[in-house]
Computed example of a mutant assay.
Amino acid sequence: MAVILSSDNDFQEVINSNQKVVVKYYADWCGSCRLFSPKFKRMSDDENFANIAFVDINAETSPEARKLANVTNLPFFAVFKNGQLLDSVAASKEEAVLALIHKLDA
Rank of each mutant, 00 (worst) to 15 (best):
A2N: 12
A2H: 05
I4H: 07
S7E: 06
N9V: 14
D10Q: 09
V14R: 00
N16V: 11
S17R: 09
V21R: 03
K24N: 11
K24I: 07
K24T: 10
Y25H: 14
Y25L: 15
Y26N: 07
A27D: 06
D28E: 13
C30T: 03
C30I: 02
S32H: 06
C33W: 04
L35M: 15
F36K: 03
F36V: 12
S37G: 04
P38C: 02
K39M: 08
K39H: 08
K41T: 08
K41R: 04
M43N: 04
D46N: 15
E47L: 06
N51H: 06
N51F: 06
I52C: 09
I52M: 09
D56F: 13
D56Q: 10
I57V: 15
I57T: 14
I57Y: 11
N58L: 12
T61Q: 02
S62D: 12
S62T: 13
S62Q: 12
P63A: 04
P63Q: 03
L68Q: 14
A69T: 09
A69Q: 04
P75A: 08
F77S: 09
A78I: 07
K81R: 11
G83D: 07
Q84W: 00
L86Q: 14
S88A: 13
A91C: 08
A91K: 02
E95Y: 04
V97I: 14
L98Q: 03
L98E: 06
L98S: 02
I101W: 01
I101V: 06
K103A: 09
A106N: 14
